[in-house]
């Protein structure tokens, strides 16, 4: 929209009654704000640190080392995987970190930026969106380290790596869906924020991050499939090593769950949006 148009456009403010989806025209106007909010998040995270961006990979590397000491020697696991355990674990940990980071940062983003939300108008969905983008930035740093590890272990990724971006997108969508629900709920019920770390820990063990899902007994496979992350993590491992079979029915179940959460998450967020300023106080 040109400046002249903006100067003469009429804005109508009235109570909204219908369920709304995203207003793409408006989001287009606010893309600069999204960009700068993300840049701010990233800059602030690393401004006063010594190791700077290396902090991003510190946690997964540490976890990988611990798991390789403890878990790698379990006989079932050794048989089920074809590559060195350290690599296996790292490949699971980096995507998991993206998922967990998106959920943790989006669930609290509105409350943390209450000052902004209470004083300025902008499409509120920009807040979880910028939290997600800044987590994606960290993920790309992690991917670089992952590439270096692949080099080190002389594991050339197979042709299936073309599917990797698809899985990353899927993972982002499922995390965002959950993030929308949680951020909206958190403004009204502040203990949501306390539940999140516990939820993430539980979820971590319920997902095949540091173990292959093939060691899960048959009767529990469906439950594991409902977890969107199981399909994604196994899928990412498949794209990099071509190990295991191509994603089967479990994957499609995960896919549908993710999409449903994402779409309903947006509707819920947009519905509760009207009362954010009321709940976030002054």
């Amino acid at each position: 929209m040109s400046l002249a148009e903006k100067k003469t456009r009429t804005t109508v403010i009235e109570p909204s009654r219908k369920l709304r989806f995203l207003n793409f025209k408006e989001l287009n106007d606010y893309w600069e704000l999204l960009l700068y909010l993300t840049i701010r998040d990233i800059k602030v995270k690393y401004k006063q640190t010594i190791f700077g961006l290396l902090w991003v990979v510190f946690q997964p590397i540490l976890l990988m080392l611990i798991f390789s000491l403890v878990i790698a020697s379990v006989p079932n696991i050794q048989q089920a995987i074809t590559c060195p355990y350290k690599l296996f674990a790292f490949v699971g940990l980096i995507p998991w970190q993206l998922f967990a980071k998106i959920i943790e940062s989006t669930s609290n983003c509105l409350v943390a930026e209450a000052g902004l939300v209470n004083k300025i108008y902008f499409p509120r969905i920009l807040m979880p969106a910028s939290a997600c983008l800044s987590a994606l930035f960290d993920f790309f740093i992690g991917c670089i380290i992952l590439a270096l590890m692949l080099l080190y272990y002389r594991q050339a990724p197979s042709w299936t790596i073309v599917f990797l971006p698809l899985f990353v997108i899927l993972m982002t969508i499922s995390a965002m869906g959950i993030g929308f629900w949680l951020s909206a709920l958190n403004t009204e019920y502040r203990d949501v924020r306390c539940l999140v770390p516990f939820l993430m820990q539980f979820w971590f063990f319920a997902s095949p991050v540091f173990y292959p899902s093939s060691i899960i007994p048959e009767q529990y496979r469906l439950i594991i499939a409902l977890n969107p992350m199981s399909g994604v993590i196994e899928g990412i491992r498949w794209t990099l090593f071509s190990y295991g079979s191509a994603p089967g029915w479990e994957f499609y179940v995960s896919l549908s769950v993710s999409f449903v959460t994402f779409i309903t998450g947006i509707y819920w967020f947009r519905w509760r949006e009207k009362s954010f300023a009321d709940h976030l106080g002054n």
Partner: peptide, 19 residues
């Protein structure tokens, strides 16, 4: 400023709103 939503009524504003 569109920060809070009204319960009833209607406002029409021409032009950009800065608060």
């Amino acid at each position: 400023s569109r920060v809070a939503e009204p319960t009833c009524g209607r406002i029409e504003v021409v032009g950009r709103i800065g608060s």
